[in-house]
């Protein structure tokens, strides 16, 4: 997941970085193919150059050596709503076939939820405004659902042109990366489409972990495996204590 996410970062991008795996993916991209990307954190940091792996999006190491620190309101007003964000990473507890996300509640009754999740945070605004968004999530039937219990964050809405019709300025979800494969979205219907499976993962396994009739690209491939240098950089330099990488 980290390597696939890392490949989504283009050199020179202004990247809105979320907590967890995106943090690691962006640090990796900065050291590999995207040395000129700008790391933006919603805590109010532009151009972070952390000398250790940040634990959260508000780690003091994001401030020391950064290009700018600004109030959070301005981060949202100028960098997101102002249209200065190229790429945003998002996570989710539930995702549907159009890349809409739920991070609010599990269970349909909002007032009596089965599980109370963290809520919106910065996600709705990243999804609304970034030129591309990439969703990173582990995949199973409880996460990849036919119908969300709650729509916290809009992706391609109801598909087709429905996102544009509601006046969402950003470019919408470009990719979904899971522990099983990598997805794009159909250019017309905007439905999530499996583009590659990770090495050793069978297509049936992916179908079983999806709560709807999965659309598969006719040119389905295998996700490019990381080379040894990438792996070493990740395991020995970026995350030696396995804060993000389990095993």
């Amino acid at each position: 997941m980290v390597f696939a996410a890392c490949r989504e970062v283009r050199d020179g991008d202004c990247v809105f970085v979320g907590v967890g795996l995106p943090n690691l993916a962006v640090q990796l991209a900065l050291r590999l193919h995207a040395p000129r990307c700008h790391l933006i954190y919603e805590s109010g940091v532009f151009g972070a150059r952390p000398v250790r792996l940040p634990i959260s999006i508000g780690d003091p190491c994001l401030v020391s050596g950064a290009a700018q620190v600004l109030p959070m309101a301005e981060t949202f007003l100028y960098f997101l709503q102002g249209g200065r964000t190229d790429l945003g990473f998002l996570g989710a507890a539930q995702i549907d076939r159009y890349g809409n996300l739920n991070t609010t509640v599990v269970g349909r009754d909002y007032d009596h939820p089965k599980v109370r999740l963290p809520g919106a945070g910065g996600a709705p605004d990243i999804a609304l405004n970034a030129r591309r968004t990439v969703v990173i999530a582990r995949q199973d039937r409880r996460k990849f659902v036919e119908r969300l219990d709650f729509r916290t964050t809009v992706g391609w809405a109801e598909g087709g042109t429905s996102r544009e019709a509601m006046g969402a300025p950003g470019g919408g979800p470009a990719r979904v990366i899971t522990d099983l494969g990598v997805y794009g979205f159909d250019a017309d219907t905007r439905e999530m489409t499996l583009e590659s499976v990770h090495p050793g993962v069978a297509l049936e396994q992916v179908r079983d972990a999806t709560g709807w009739d999965l659309r598969v690209s006719p040119s389905l491939g295998t996700t490019e495996a990381p080379d040894e240098a990438m792996l070493r950089l990740l395991r020995e330099e970026l995350d030696p204590d396995r804060i993000y990488l389990k095993g």
Binding site: T104, A120, L128, N129, F150, R151, T152, V154, G167, A168
Partner: peptide, 9 residues
């Protein structure tokens, strides 16, 4: 703001 369009919030 532009913020809640398309969401259940």
């Amino acid at each position: 703001l532009r913020g809640y369009r398309g969401t259940d919030l």
